[in-house]
Design a protein around this nucleic acid. Structure first.
Lengths: 219, 219
DNA sequence: TTTTGTGAACTAGTTCACAGCT
DNA sequence: AGCTGTGAACTAGTTCACAAAA
């Protein structure tokens, strides 16, 4: 069974653990490619991050037979495949909701631009901010114009960087604007309807998990 | 078996899934407490986030018998227990490495202060920044002074907000300064020795996972 | 010989279901 | 009657181990 992208079963759900690892592999391949490496084995890749080689082979084999037995994976070929699987060949446009400290920092975060994301707009309710722009030049719009600008710019992803109080309300507006993927940085649980993917990064939870670790160690 | 904090087996490792949920429970209890609610059942808690009630009971029961059969959990009592388990009763001091956009935004992030963390210092190598401070007043020090200040201030957690290139080097300095818990925002894999807890938040991976979702939906 | 792709075995995490308190 | 705490059943995720291909 050889296909550009195989899907073992159309309805089978790929685990988020797997897709997150694909991103990590891609980054590693970019580094290897830049260093002039042509082929890489699952074994070698596994050593880089503390991962099992079978894990990597399974993750990749899920989407197709990208490897060559006895050789490994061609770095450039696999890079292309991963880009395609992750939907990175088209430049995805991103809007950031909330032009506070965090929103502005995220708007200019170089890591986002790197792999083909394009931060096209910031949105805020504070009228003094509207019309301004981030240091790197991302314009700030009134959140009232979200729907119009999202449609015009074909925004694919919204990043939520507003205070907890307004987070759910902003998510509702994002959903109403037809955006189907949301990265949330506000703490607490948010609701999004079926068909909209909501991924949360909870900074407080992360810190508290470290606090827990320290508390245990000290016993 | 009733103990303030029971540990089923001393050497048993608590899953990170569990500890992350404890943070989420705590936040929910804070809200309930503020709303004047006295007791809450696992069932009610489970409805808030889309979680199973047995999951919540297991998570809590792992650390002690905090509930009352027929009643549920006393909000204030459970709050205290969770704070103790997560090590939040003492104010943990945090240093942020890298006074760029992201570092400065994190330094002033209100969510960190909320649950008792104290951001006491920013560190950078750029001499022009040293001596300045963040908008909220967190002072910026030279990274050369990390070891001295970490010891003096008893810094418990380091947050890495420097570019990828210097991330591993900065982690090494943090480890050398005797800090045992690190929250890393730089992309890529970092190494920390045994006994140092390294937790990474990878913004690029998060965005790419959304991109993957969008790519699948469109098929 | 080397290294993939993958079924089988294993390990970890979640949910069920119910005995046992209050 | 109501709700916890928990063994048992189940589900998901990882690792092993080996046949098959280059």
């Amino acid at each position: 069974m050889k296909l550009a992208i195989k899907r073992k079963q159309l309805n089978e759900q790929v685990s988020e653990f797997t897709t997150n690892r694909l991103s990590v592999y891609l980054r590693c391949l970019n580094a290897l490619g830049a260093a002039g490496v042509r082929t890489v084995s699952s074994q070698t890749l596994a050593q880089q991050f503390h991962l099992n080689a079978a894990q990597i082979r399974k993750d990749l084999a899920y989407f197709g037979e990208f490897g060559v037995r006895g050789v490994g994976y061609y770095v450039n070929g696999l890079k292309r495949h991963l880009r395609q699987i992750l939907g990175l060949e088209r430049k995805l446009k991103v809007a950031i909701l909330g032009a506070g400290n965090l929103g502005l920092a995220l708007a200019d975060y170089p890591g986002f631009r790197q792999e083909g994301f394009q931060i096209v707009a910031l949105f805020d309710t504070v009228t003094a901010k509207v019309g301004q722009q981030s240091r790197a030049g991302v314009p700030i719009f009134d959140i009232k114009d979200l729907r119009r600008i999202a449609a015009r710019e074909k925004i694919g992803i919204a990043v939520i960087a507003v205070p907890v109080e307004s987070a759910q309300h902003v998510v509702n507006q994002v959903v109403a604007a037809g955006i189907k993927a949301i990265l949330n940085f506000s703490p607490g649980t948010l609701r999004a309807p079926e068909g909209v993917k909501l991924k949360s990064v909870d900074l407080t939870v992360s810190l508290e998990s470290l606090s827990f670790y320290l508390a245990r160690e000290e016993e």
